[in-house]
């Protein structure tokens, strides 16, 4: 049996970390990235065109959106795909590839980063602690690379997506302020609704939830300039980030229960660890054909949150009583 080859499309801030994790586990990786920075790195196997990715056993998409066109090409060639994309429109296009993936008998795992990705794994972890799950609320802080920062900036200016009492709502981005306490060292930040794909994916994985929302942290300047180009260049290497998931529901005796979990760390590193854990598990345990997200029941058998913790993710739980702020 030959060692599988993983194709990596996009070797930026997140992609380079995914490459590092996969290489550390003796996975052979071939990289496709037209940027000149990669040309100077002579230690990686470099692919000349995106079509060469079809020769790989599995392809990881870490570049900027859109991922849907390349995913469609790879799925049509029966090549499994893992995408870390977090663009809402792109995610809808990726989910629409479900019939194509089933027809070609191949799995595509979408939203395999920090949020979506780790957010789905935390939601699954919290839902197991509840007898009945009613609500899921995700909050995100931090960006991985410059493209991710631009994506978050644009998301704050677009119409958000939320699942509210059994129907989709589209509140304006930048609305719905909520003061959220993230795990240390991130602390408290005001978070607002934005065009994030988490509700879209979580609603698929948790169809019984009546309310699902996603918010992203922002400052007053971020909100003011959300519909304009970024005024200041984003962090070249990303920054510290966090994802926090709150699940509300009922206990076995009908009592109301809220459970909260979160993770904090370098955003790109968290996304890369989750992505690498997903790739590692998919190489060992193939899953059913179709388009899957990390919170889906179909991927529960992969035990991805445990494997992510093995690679360095530190899951934290909020202890105490979750209640509305009174000030």
């Amino acid at each position: 049996m030959t060692t599988p080859i993983v194709g990596l499309a996009g070797c930026g801030v997140t992609g380079s970390r995914v490459l590092h994790h996969l290489a550390a586990h003796q996975v052979r990786v071939a990289v496709y990235d037209p940027s000149p920075a990669l040309a100077r790195n002579t230690r990686v196997v470099r692919l000349e065109s995106a079509a060469d990715l079809m020769a790989c056993d599995l392809v990881v998409l870490c570049g900027p959106a859109p991922h849907a066109p390349l995913t469609e090409m790879l799925v049509a060639d029966a090549t499994p795909v893992v995408s870390v994309g977090d663009d809402l429109d792109d995610m809808q296009a990726l989910l629409a590839l479900q019939p194509l993936a089933e027809r070609h008998g191949v799995a595509a795992v979408v939203g395999a980063g920090m949020a979506p990705g780790l957010s789905g794994l935390l939601a699954r972890y919290l839902a197991a602690q509840l007898h009945t799950l009613d609500e899921l609320h995700v909050a995100v802080h931090g960006t991985a690379g410059p493209q991710c920062a631009r994506q978050h900036h644009a998301a704050l200016g677009d119409a958000a997506l939320g699942w509210h009492d059994g129907e989709w709502i589209q509140p304006p981005g930048g609305s719905g302020r909520d003061l959220v306490w993230f795990p240390e060292p991130i602390g408290a930040h005001d978070c607002y609704r934005a065009a994030l794909p988490d509700p879209l994916l979580l609603q698929r994985g948790f169809p019984t939830a009546q309310r699902i929302s996603a918010r992203v942290s922002a400052t007053r300047r971020d909100r003011l300039t959300a519909r304009l180009p970024m005024l200041t260049p984003p962090h070249a290497a990303g920054d510290l980030g966090s994802v926090r998931v709150e699940a509300r529901g009922a206990g076995p005796h009908g009592e109301r229960v809220s459970v909260i979990a979160g993770v904090a760390g370098p955003t790109a590193e968290l996304a890369a660890v989750v992505c690498a854990a997903t790739v590692g598990q998919l190489l060992r345990h193939p899953v059913a054909p179709g388009v899957h997200a990390l919170g889906d029941e179909a991927l529960a058998g992969l035990d991805l949150l445990h494997h992510a913790t093995q690679l360095g993710v530190r899951v934290q739980e909020f202890t105490g009583v979750a209640r509305a702020t009174s000030w």
């Binding site: 795990p183 979160g262 445990h306 739980e317 909020f318 009583v321 000030w327």
Partner: peptide
């Protein structure tokens, strides 16, 4: 204006399934 000061974060282990 005293913020809520109950509770805090604690690291938890995620055992294999």
């Amino acid at each position: 204006g005293v913020p809520p000061q109950e509770g805090g974060w604690r690291e938890v282990g995620v055992p294999p399934q």
